[in-house]
């Protein structure tokens, strides 16, 4: 409880270092990138001559960047869909008081403790067209298993099929996380609510649809936000697993940004890409923050 102006002042000085750190290292550098994105900085030496939206036009007219945006869109959609549906299913099944629940829970949660880099390398070999799942399927007698997986540049409605293995790997890693969230949510639903419904003769499916799902809504939203910003910024998994892929089939803005800035020394264009990424994440995060903030005020 803050009692006096003295307390207020002291409290202010206690948080001052972190305010300064956040101010400089987050907002300061966002401002710096923004400035760089409007500059003529091309090469190792910084050049902050203002050139307006020239770099933005350059980046948005680049075929690679257009593909990146589509890839991000599809990747995010399918990644969220898979992780959330699987996570919910697993949580629901585990919530039925199965034997060895603690062990199973840990097994499902385990992939999350692995670094994305490790996941990337492992799944690269799993989906390698000659030695991976194709070889396994052939061993089992499916001689037609000749898919190119992430080496296949074909796309349907701008969705590159090569993204499928990447989506699977990413959801494999984070399904456990959504499962844990949903499990916590399920545990928070009062038993008697469900028991009452059962007594009233509701089927399990009806209970799931009409009682459990609506009560899990806030959890689903949080999961979407957390996974959503993961997927918009994803770099390490894709970088180690497939790289930019054939004809940029698995390229994402983060990889393009890294290569443009640190390989090609096109600093201004790199800054543009990172600003666009920031805006993409903001589109997802800001409404969420806003609604949480409003709830807090109401309280």
């Amino acid at each position: 409880m803050i009692k006096s102006r003295g307390d207020l002042l002291r409290a202010f000085f206690v948080v001052l270092p972190s305010i300064a750190a956040v101010g400089i290292f987050i907002y300061g550098f966002i401002g710096w990138s923004l400035r760089a994105s409007f500059s003529a900085w091309d090469g190792i030496i910084p050049d902050f001559t203002f050139v307006g939206f020239k770099n933005y036009l350059e980046v948005f007219s680049n075929v690679r960047f257009q593909k990146d945006l589509w890839n991000t869109l599809y990747f995010t959609f399918f990644f969220l869909l898979l992780s959330i549906c699987w996570g919910l299913l697993l949580a629901w099944l585990l919530d039925r008081k199965v034997k060895g629940e603690a062990l199973l829970r840990n097994i499902f949660l385990f992939p999350m403790s692995i670094s994305f880099v490790v996941t990337g390398v492992v799944w690269r070999w799993i989906f390698n067209p000659t030695v991976g799942v194709n070889a396994l399927l052939k061993l089992l007698g499916f001689s037609g298993a000749n898919w190119g997986w992430y080496t296949d540049p074909t796309s349907v409605l701008k969705f590159h099929l090569a993204l499928i293995p990447v989506i699977l790997a990413a959801s494999w890693q984070l399904t456990g996380y959504t499962m844990a969230m949903f499990l916590a949510g399920l545990r928070g639903i009062p038993e008697d609510l469900i028991d009452h419904a059962r007594i009233d003769g509701a089927s399990e499916l009806y209970i799931f649809r009409r009682i459990i799902l609506p009560l899990l809504k806030p959890i689903t939203l949080s999961a979407m936000i957390v996974l959503g910003h993961f997927s918009l910024k994803i770099f390490d998994l894709i970088y180690t697993m497939t790289g930019k892929g054939p004809a940029f089939a698995t390229d994402v803005p983060a990889i393009f940004m890294f290569e443009t800035t640190f390989r090609g020394n096109h600093y201004a264009e790199g800054a543009v890409i990172s600003i666009v990424m920031l805006l993409l994440v903001a589109v997802v995060i800001v409404p969420y923050l806003y609604s949480t903030f409003r709830k807090e005020i109401k309280r």
Binding site: D42, G43, V63, R64, P153, K244, P246, A247, F248, E259, T260, R263, G264, N265, H266
Partner: peptide, 18 residues
């Protein structure tokens, strides 16, 4: 230069499959 090489590599990524 590295800037030129990065562009050539980008062109090659598409050229090899298209």
């Amino acid at each position: 230069s590295e800037g030129w090489l990065t562009k050539i590599n980008d062109i090659m990524t598409v050229f090899v499959s298209e």
